Each structure stands twice: as C-alpha cells, then as structure tokens.
Amino acid sequence: MPALVVPRSSVADSVRRAARSGQWDDHPAYTGVARMDDGQFDAWTDRLVADAREGTPRPEGFVPSTNLWWVDGTEFLGRVQVRHRLTPRLRDLGGHVGYWVAPAVRRRGHATAILAATLPVANALGLECVLVTCDDDNVASRRVIEANGGLFQDRRGVKLRFWVPTA
C-alpha cells in the first residue's frame, strides 16, 4: 500500500530509475539524481529533510519546505513538496504544494492519493488552506486538485490557481 514517507536511501534505485525516465521535472533540488552514488544520495536526502527547518540555508526566494516521497515498499512512485509559506512568486506560480508522479505509474490515481495524503501534513504545519496551481492545459492535474476539494480562484498567465482546504 503506497504511503508518504520521509526521503530515504531504501528507495534509491527506484528514484534513480524515475530520474532516468526522461520526464523528470526541472526542480533544482532533483538535478543530477540519476548520477548520484550512494554517498551523494544519502547526503541529498539529508538536505531534503533539512529543508523543512527554518534555519536551513537555501537559495534566495526559497522558503522552508517539507519534502515527502510516495512509495510502495522500496518502489518510489512520486513526490510532493509542501512549502510552509508563500512568496509573491509562489503566490502566482507555484503555490504551497507541488507533486510529481513517476511516468511508469501515471494514470493509476497516485496523484490524487498523494495530494489527499499531503493535506493533513499541511494542516499540521498550520496551513488551513493550501494554494495548488497547475498549467491551464493540464487537465489531469486540474482533476486531481478538484477531486481533493480544490476551489478555483483565478488564472494568472498559464497557471490556474486553486485553494484546497486541509481539514
């Protein structure tokens, strides 16, 4: 049964496979994952976990974020990032929550389940509602957001913006 977990080395091989899929997104925290040796991978997962702490150094414009992986046993299926607060850029483009599902397991309900499992995490961070965005032509993501109670607010450029209650 898939579940959200803290990033961990036990799924390293399947994370690397997902990174080599050719459809890995360009999130800066995930650059170079496919080529990491075990030591680099361990250090990287430590940084992902540390990113949730307020005092962790991060690039300008980035905020503390809780990074979780959607796994089934040792199989990495996807990931989610919960940004603890919004900057003006995140308010327009990124929102509080960003999720990604490995191409090999798409169209099986994982994105909907990831977002549903993420909402209590966001609530525990003190977020009563989270902003979730998607591209205006991403019908699948829009359905995921709406299936989790997302209420459409507006469109900004190519981004649709939804507020999703966390409780």
Rank of each mutant, 00 (worst) to 15 (best):
S21A: 13
K159Q: 15
L86I: 09
R35N: 15
P57T: 04
D136C: 11
V6K: 12
G73C: 08
W69L: 04
R143G: 12
T56W: 03
A18Y: 09
A122F: 01
R161M: 05
L90G: 12
N67T: 10
D137K: 07
H27D: 14
E60L: 13
G32I: 10
Q153H: 08
R79Y: 03
L115F: 00
A124R: 14
A147M: 04
N148E: 03
V63C: 14
F76T: 07
V11D: 03
N67L: 08
H27N: 14
I145M: 01
P57L: 05
A113W: 00
W24V: 06
S141W: 02
W70M: 05
A50I: 10
L127K: 05
M1N: 04
M36A: 12
R85A: 15
V101R: 01
V105H: 06
R156F: 15
P57F: 11
W44P: 00
N148Y: 00
Q40H: 08
D72K: 04
R53P: 02
T166D: 01
D51Q: 13
Q23F: 01
F152K: 12
E146N: 08
E60H: 14
G109N: 06
G22N: 03
I145K: 00
G98Q: 04
F76M: 08
R161N: 04
P28M: 11
H110C: 07
V6G: 08
T74M: 04
L125A: 15
D25C: 05
A12L: 10
V132L: 06
N138Y: 05
P28W: 07
V105W: 01
Q40W: 05
R79W: 00
P88T: 13
A3F: 01
G126K: 08
W69R: 06
Q23G: 08
L115R: 05
S21K: 02
A124Y: 02
Y30V: 08
P2Q: 05
D137Y: 04
S10G: 11
R108G: 03
